[in-house]
Design a protein around this nucleic acid. Structure first.
Lengths: 223, 223, 223, 223
DNA sequence: GATGAATGAGTATTCATTCAT
DNA sequence: GATGAATGAATACTCATTCAT
């Protein structure tokens, strides 16, 4: 089942060209993960052992490289999400989903910046981000059906929780890279229905369309 | 006998100068809130309708402008924190504290950056930030003493929660500016001790010194 | 015997204006002597306890202030030169002249820069510098007449010697402010005729007109 | 096995790059010689007919450009110094040394600034400058041993003499570029011991450490 | 007349992007 | 196709000079 994106690449790249493309992606993955999206393309190129020109031959501009890189990354995450769905216990599935997502972000400064809205998130990223909706919805519905998750939780709450956790991870990455797990636990405990005292959630959740709008905005705070 | 700071301001600025100073502060407040502290002083000046030189006449450098802008803001927050402490019920005090803090940061990207990362935060900001520690500690101790808050909560968890909430607020500010309250509720429910099922917090909290280190880093990923 | 410059000042300044003028000159003398001509006029004004505007009301621009300052200073030096001329022994007179000149320069970074051709030396300075010619000539002629000074010395050599000495003074001012005296001695010993071994001076001296040209050049190396 | 510096230059620059590099060096040589090291890199670039970015591609910063330009120059001077040492007659060697040095500096304001003050002189320049000490010392000792040079002369006097002479050269460069030879002769005559009338040098010479201090100062009056 | 506020061109340096080799 | 050279706009900050108060 090919989609538009793949159709664009009708002619496969020459072997060496493809190898360079991969090298660049690998180098970019490494430096962006480690030092964030500010790293200059010159440095990415150096890291990849190619010239900047080569980077620009393979990717229209920095944004394009970032998209190519993270679209795949996010796609992988979507797979992870599916894996979480496969867990037999609905509650565990939900928790595990959040953990995997946040964990993925926690180890990748670039990915985090992208979710936190760097100026580099273009349409393809937005598109990729959408893929999470379905699994997120399913995870929540199932955990609510068993009475484990609170009833007022909504699909759109998931990206927010991940956002929050990855922010915490970002903040403390050098000092205590695992600290986000504390806050995951806090949040997760807050998600439980099995409690005499759950406070009703005060604001209405975002509608999916609103979530869409947010994701399409061009870097509100241009982190 | 007043202190140095006040002594410096003996002579009030000329009317026009004061007007420009205000214009600059207003412009800076706006652009920093909207787009973060990266905005160049040239742009602040343009926004204020003055030359850069004027900005530099009033403020020694970017950091100084930022301090002028946010020191008061942060001091006000500290007052807010004290006010929260005054609430009779310890649990309500804690919740109200988080709410006030997150609410204040919501919608001001600059303030958030300043509380979180230090690229532009000088001593006065650092000093202002420190004021929060004591009240945070007291709030938690008190809410734990009454058995309302979970025992494994630590002072250093507070800034993280505020960070997370204000990020959520930031994220959705144009679409649903109040959405962060949902996540405050989630977190707060996770903070309760009165629950049969609290999961032990997995990672150790940050030590105050570690928190200090983080705050002194000149921006984790150069946000 | 009034000259053109004084004629320009037909109307004497109001008392307070004159006082300010003097304050500015005094302040400028101090800071320029100590830290050189780079000092900003803002700082001069602050030092004088007046506003910059006042400086600009009294002096057309920085160059003008410098001229006013150093024309007088150089005039004073010319008086010093006359004093040297008064010494009974022609040789002593010459030596003392060089010493006084170099000594004056050694203590004044601004004066030195001016002699070494800062971009601020305008026509009035050039004019003032001319005043030295006559006394210089006389000093040399007399010391040659008594057979004390070597015969191939010329008037135009004098400014060069002073230039060289003040450069040495400049160079070492913080470490050994009196070091220039060593080189004065060396030069002076080189000036003596009473020696079996005087090497003939290899290059022709500058003609007075050439000296003029040099002095009028607009800061060859814009020190 | 060659050292790091050479290892870096394994791959020669592309033809066009090399051409531009040369253009930049030529332009820099010209403007620095003429107007001193203050000239901005923008101007150097303009003079070379390239963009500033190109200058920064070839040279890490201004200091680096200056080093590239003058290290060789100064090394050549050191060779010259050695050559002077090779002269059979110690007195001639000393004189010839001074002559060569002063001659080299004459007409290059940048070189002079570099030898004298350090605003832009990095380690390599500092290193290059040190090379002069030994030959200077040897020259003096030898000329004193034969009784030709006065006994109170010290190694540290040499840089001063060169400084003075090159300043004179600078001063008159357009009108009479060789005039400094007059003053060299004067000084040299003052250096002789074979004289009935040598005045004792009044101030103590600079200690080598003091000389070091001077050279490390970032420009006495910010020339 | 005095003040000090406002201006903007100028300085060193960085980096995304284009283009000659 | 690959390379890396060239470009220039952008950034924080300074200072001589002008002008409103």
């Amino acid at each position: 089942m090919t989609d538009v994106d793949e159709a664009e690449q009708v002619r496969p790249l020459r072997r060496d060209a493809e190898r360079n493309r991969q090298r660049i992606l690998a180098a970019a993955a490494e430096v962006f993960a480690q030092r964030g999206l500010q790293v200059s393309l010159d440095e990415v190129a150096r890291h990849a052992g190619v010239g900047v020109g080569t980077v620009y031959r393979r990717f229209a501009d920095k944004e394009d490289l970032i998209q190519a890189l993270f679209t795949k990354r996010i796609d992988d995450l979507a797979v992870l999400a599916e894996a979480a769905l496969a867990e037999p216990d609905p509650w565990q599935a939900l928790v595990s989903y959040l953990e995997r997502m946040a964990g993925a972000m926690a180890g990748d400064a670039g990915l985090r910046q992208l979710m936190l809205f760097s100026p580099y998130a273009g349409e393809r990223i937005a598109y990729a981000r959408q893929k999470f909706s379905p699994s997120g919805r399913a995870l929540i519905k199932r955990a609510q059906a068993t009475g484990q998750a609170r009833a007022d939780l909504e699909t759109t709450d998931i990206p927010f929780m991940i956002l929050m956790l990855s922010t915490a991870a970002d903040y403390a990455q050098d000092v205590s890279p695992g600290i986000w797990r504390r806050y995951l636990t806090l949040l997760v405990d807050g998600l439980r229905a099995s409690r005499d005292c759950a406070t009703p959630l005060p604001a209405p959740p975002l509608l999916p369309e609103e979530m869409q709008m947010i994701m399409n905005q061009r870097s509100p705070q241009q982190h």
